[in-house]
């Protein structure tokens, strides 16, 4: 595949104590596992690599690093530069239930120092995981307390480290990963400005661009009154809703969850209209509109007209700097004639 060279590889390290839930998390977000299936996963031996292609030219190069002490020692001593070199993001997973929190923080400190040495510009995300095991009343304070501790051990990354409470049983996992993905996307501004124009043209209240297999949001455009939507967690909620639905469709049809995609979803009510349609090879677009039939139909047509431009964005890396100049030149025939009703 010739285009693969042009893809920008971003190295993401997933680390943390053995049993903290790294592979479970990865399987759910990227491999269409449902939360209860992760019981089947065994311990990760050494490093498992996976590549995930995202919107634009982002290729996620995910290193799921086994957390047993022997492996960690090996990362730190023998393959220090191999593992910690060229890292864009380190995701460190803490188990909230861990009995040796102090030891976890020391391990974290060792890894942070290695990272500081080899990739000082990397971004660190700490996920405090298995939050569902804590009773809901105590979650927040415990999380803050742990985060403070860990931040103190973060050396020069200190203030830049971002913390998220996560659990595979609710949408918090998506919230954390959406932030991580957004950080990694190289041409987020370009995509956003194109979506902004699109939203203007189709009178959308809100547009959400998300990746098809993971259902992780890439970005969103919110306009006008939708900014006051009381559901500020709606993006991760939508990710989790769509993922759940994908699983149920797959189960019903007896196909692997990866291939159970819908071509289109429409919801029309007296208060809003909403549809999800395919945008590019890897992404879907969810659009929320005012409740008028004509807006709904014209939006569908306009989006199908926009598809080629977004498709091009996914491929081209070279042209990226002069994105403004190439926009008009592209009216090829790849649009799928969906048409209005």
């Amino acid at each position: 595949m010739s285009s693969s060279k042009r893809l920008k590889q971003r190295k993401v390290l997933l680390m943390g104590k053995s049993g903290a839930g790294k592979s479970s998390m990865r399987s759910i977000v990227f491999s269409n596992y449902v939360a209860k299936d992760v019981r089947r996963l065994g311990a990760t031996i050494d490093v498992e690599h996976s590549n995930i292609k995202f919107m634009g030219n982002l290729m996620l190069n995910l290193w799921d690093c086994g957390g047993q002490d022997g492996f960690v020692e090996n990362y730190l001593l023998h393959s220090r530069s191999h593992v910690f070199g060229g890292v864009a993001v380190l995701i460190f997973v803490f188990d909230i239930e861990s009995r040796e929190f102090a030891a976890d923080v020391i391990n974290y400190g060792n890894i942070i120092r290695a990272l500081e040495e080899c990739s000082p510009n990397a971004k660190v995300f700490c996920l405090i995981h298995k939050m569902d095991l804590v009773q809901s009343g105590f979650r927040h304070s415990l999380f803050e307390q742990r985060a403070e501790h860990i931040r103190a051990a973060s050396e020069s990354f200190g203030e830049a480290v971002e913390f998220f409470p996560t659990s595979i049983w609710d949408q918090s996992l998506y919230k954390a990963w959406t932030q991580i993905i957004y950080f990694l996307i190289p041409n987020a501004q370009t995509i956003e400005s194109m979506l902004q124009d699109l939203a203007e043209v189709i009178h959308a209240r809100e547009i959400i661009l998300y990746e098809r297999t993971t259902c992780l949001m890439v970005t969103h455009i919110t306009k006008g009154t939708e900014l006051q939507n009381p559901f500020t967690d709606r993006f991760e909620r939508i990710s989790s809703i769509l993922k759940t639905h994908k699983h149920s469709m797959a189960k019903h049809m007896g196909v692997p969850a990866g291939s159970a995609n819908f071509a289109e979803l429409q919801i029309k009510t007296g208060r809003f209209m909403f549809f999800i349609t395919r945008l590019t090879e890897n992404t879907n677009l969810a659009v929320s509109l005012p409740p008028y039939e004509y807006i709904f139909n014209s939006a569908r047509v306009n989006i199908s007209l926009m598809r080629p431009r977004f498709a091009e964005l996914e491929l081209s890396n070279k042209k990226r700097p002069d994105i403004g100049s190439r926009t008009e030149s592209n009216d090829d025939s790849r649009e799928r004639g969906e048409g209005a009703n």
Binding site: M249, M253, V255, S259, A260, N261, F262, A263, E264, L265, Q266, I267, K268, T269, G270, R271, F272, P291
Partner: peptide
């Protein structure tokens, strides 16, 4: 837009359709 008493129940005469890719 219509005013409904109970926003949680869903909207008046909501309608939805899913078309599958396969």
């Amino acid at each position: 837009e219509q005013i409904e008493e109970d926003p949680e129940v869903g909207n008046q005469d909501a309608e939805s359709l899913i078309v599958l890719e396969k």
